[in-house]
């Protein structure tokens, strides 16, 4: 889905998910590793503030990924 959106729209699509090898296999180009399968963009165990801080850090990394010129699939750690 990531790949086809990128292909059809011609825009960068950053995928945030947990299992990086799957994203590489299906052809995502800009990858941000998520926290966990059932909560990729949050850390509920850290409480409200910690959870939001996690999300903020991930999204800022996603922005950096979409602003970065790349020539092949890249994982933004």
């Amino acid at each position: 889905m990531t790949r086809e959106i990128e292909n059809a729209a011609g825009i960068p699509v950053v995928q945030i998910a947990t299992i990086v090898p799957i994203m590489l296999t299906v052809g995502a180009n800009r990858i941000v590793p998520g926290v966990a399968i059932p909560h990729p963009t949050g850390s509920p165990e850290l409480g409200k503030a910690g959870d939001k801080a996690t999300r903020r850090e991930l999204l800022l990394r996603a922005f950096k990924a979409m602003e970065t010129e790349i020539t092949y699939q890249t994982v933004f750690e």
Partner: peptide, 14 residues
């Protein structure tokens, strides 16, 4: 997204 003029997307997967 293209027709709407969107510049980028964030896709989250579980």
């Amino acid at each position: 997204l293209k027709n709407a003029g969107v510049d980028a997307a964030i896709l989250t997967s579980t």
